[in-house]
Design a protein around this nucleic acid. Structure first.
Lengths: 219, 219
DNA sequence: CTATCATTCAATGAAACGATAGAATGATGG
DNA sequence: CCATCATTCTATCGTTTCATTGAATGATAG
């Protein structure tokens, strides 16, 4: 006979797979684009061996799948909803853990010093895009942009921001986005563009959340 | 400087709190109604000491709060969204873990043998309630019903089902619900009522999901 | 078919987790 | 203020998790 407890124990298995900072980092990275072990290891500052082990655990929990492509093993998220799950986890943590608030506060401290332009919510962004008076700026690395991005977004990786300013319209408000709420790239971009006199704000989410919400994406 | 990794580590802390079957059981119980350590321990088959420890962990993770009422410590969920979080965790687990499917399959095996009436979805239930030709049956214990229930639901705890049949209308279809998708109470009720000749089906979710979705509840 | 590259496996030690038992704390009722 | 009840704290032991190391496997290019 199946007891309810067996089911809960199995659910706990999945939750436990989410219960490690490095694994969450791997999942966030995978939410941008599928990637090889090697790539994942270097973008998350793990040794290859260690990354591989964590990926196995995620695989056992059904959160990622792997397939071989030549010498490389390509990992990807099994399910779009994993992004939603992490988003909800984030919301619950932010509203109920003081520690979390402290850390997020610090991440946003720069912005506040700068003149406190609040981040643009998804709803607000949709309205602005409808109106057509904003330009979307994707400051992620080129490969992540290539794997998928918001419609009509202009890609300028942060490192080349100043060098490629000519791609940005001067007459529109600019909305910058990157990997997600905790990603520093768009914060940085907004600061730098603001100093250069652009009207610029940050999208409070990132590409993965947009996609997981079922909104249209481009390649 | 706050690194993104600090934030992920803190998130992982919350996920880890969900990563234990007993703690998930405690949370599910708390989703029904607030309760004392003693009550929680006995409904989840834990010793009081052990339950207390798990509750502390949930508290550290910001998932529950406690307040003293006389000699007793009353625990409650901090946030309605925790129910949503567990629901999403369940969905992800069910679609991506074979083991999960196996266990759920077994739980539903009885129903299938019985003539396979599929469970009623939330959307379907809302439509049926609109129409007015169904009666809602809440088969949870009286205290949980008292703490909150679906509008117009009739409470008959499973143990008294046969004794209190006169409360059920014979001319309407009956929709039974209980604590949630994995709760056995409504399965059992449906089987027994079906044998007695009632037109009866099961709501696929439970009270906590209904409430967390922002739908109206009664006391 | 061998050298190389990408990844996984296996073994180790340190740290964290989980259950238990028994002592300690806090509130209440006489 | 003492006895009782509900809960928490402390200490212990066995188990699991995590990072590291180095060896093993699998695929490819010459």
């Amino acid at each position: 006979m199946t007891s309810q407890q067996d089911l809960l124990d199995t659910l706990a298995l999945v939750a436990r797979a989410l219960g490690n900072g490095h694994r969450l980092a791997l999942l966030e990275r995978l939410a941008q684009a599928e990637a090889s072990v090697d790539t994942l290891a270097s973008t998350t500052d793990l040794t290859v061996g260690n990354a591989s082990q964590h990926l196995q655990q995620l695989r056992r929990a059904g959160l990622v799948t792997a397939s071989r492509s030549g010498k490389q093993m390509i990992y990807r998220l099994t399910d779009e909803r994993i992004v939603l799950l992490m988003g909800l986890l984030r919301q619950v943590a932010e509203t109920n853990l003081a520690e979390m608030e402290r850390l997020v506060g610090r991440l946003f401290a720069d912005d506040d010093a700068q003149g406190a332009l609040e981040a643009v919510s998804r709803r607000e962004l949709l309205a602005k895009l409808q109106g057509g008076q904003v330009a979307l700026l994707d400051v992620r690395p080129e490969e992540e942009y290539a794997a998928g991005h918001l419609p009509e977004a202009i890609n300028i990786p942060l490192a080349q921001l100043e060098a490629m300013l000519d791609r940005l319209p001067r007459d529109k408000e600019i909305i910058a986005y990157c990997r997600g709420p905790y990603c520093a790239l768009s914060h940085e971009a907004v600061q730098r563009l603001h100093q250069l006199g652009y009207r610029v704000r940050r999208f409070e989410e990132g590409y993965p959340e947009w996609k997981a919400a079922g909104l249209p994406v481009m390649r």
